[in-house]
Simulated assay, not measured.
Amino acid sequence: MDAKFGFLVIDKPAGVTSHDCVSRLRKILRIKRVGHGGTLDPLVTGVLPIAIGKATRLLPYLHTSKKYQGTIQLGERTNTDDLEGETIKSSPWPQLSEADLDKFLDLFRGRIFQEPPLFSSVHINGERAYKKARKGEIFDLPRKEITIYQLKVNSWNQSTGRLDLYIHCSSGTYIRSLARDLGENIGCGGMLFKLRRLEALGFNEDEVIPLPDLNYNKEKLLSKVVDPILSLNHLSKFRLKCEEDFYWRNGRKIITSNSRIEVSKIIEKGELNSYKNFLLVINNDYSIAGIAEWVDDSIIQPKVVLNPL
């Protein structure tokens, strides 16, 4: 398998875009096939998984939930729902206890429908929403179903109106929208003041490396690439026999016994049900072969075939 294959976990600094990080890594590694796993706004810091080489094809099969630590400023409303935008309205916030705030936050726990910010990358008739918003166009964005698994008050400062939160949510959740909607429910408006991503796609802060500069040594950077098998350990596994290799490499289904499936303990517990029909397929030498769909008890259907060079 290509040596430039796997994941880098970057600690994205403030002031750069996710695309800037990808572009820099392309230049250092001198390869085009680099992609990120989940956009972070320029002001947001933290965990940014980067797929290197053929690992870009594996991004849809990684953990999708994300964890954040953020600060919401009550009493301020901006057109971007964060510090980057223009102030629309300022209002005093009421006297609130942490118990009061927890009741408001309860409105956002679990499955909810959320409207993305106007300044977002959502497509509207083939154009990004933020481009339409910059031109002053008036439009509505469709609400999306998301899940907030955990929403906890870390601290509350009544004098400054700043609320520190821990958020564990599904992919597609906008923390800026959460700040906006929480402020509206309280009645004083709100915006995102600060945000750091603690975990994304199964990677966490313990695994991050600083965004390297353009002079960073290529081989040293490649040594930090995470093996994709380690990143996909939430999936059940299927190991190919030598005689099945030809069928796999040609994208043909394999008929087998379900006793050969090593079922993930995470799947057994009922977690990550959206992944229960996908398998991490490994070669006889335990290198990664790709991703398959477990059609029923006896059929393995290739989805991503990673042929060796």
Rank of each mutant, 00 (worst) to 15 (best):
K224N: 11
E219D: 15
M191F: 07
T173A: 02
F139T: 04
R24G: 13
V16W: 08
D106I: 00
K276I: 10
L198N: 11
P49C: 05
D11M: 03
H63R: 11
R30K: 15
K220P: 00
Q69M: 02
D20R: 10
D81P: 02
F108P: 07
F108L: 08
L107K: 14
S65L: 03
H36E: 06
C188M: 09
L40N: 04
Y68S: 01
L151V: 10
F246E: 14
C242R: 13
E243L: 06
R128W: 06
S259F: 08
S170I: 01
H234S: 03
D106P: 03
P42E: 09
K237S: 14
E271A: 11
N215M: 13
H63C: 04
I267K: 05
K218Y: 01
A129Q: 12
E137Q: 14
E199R: 14
G183T: 08
E207W: 04
P142S: 07
P49D: 04
G85Q: 02
P116A: 11
V153G: 02
S121K: 11
D181L: 11
T160H: 08
S65A: 11
G15S: 14
G202L: 13
I299L: 12
F238R: 03
L105Q: 12
Q150V: 01
L306E: 00
N250M: 00
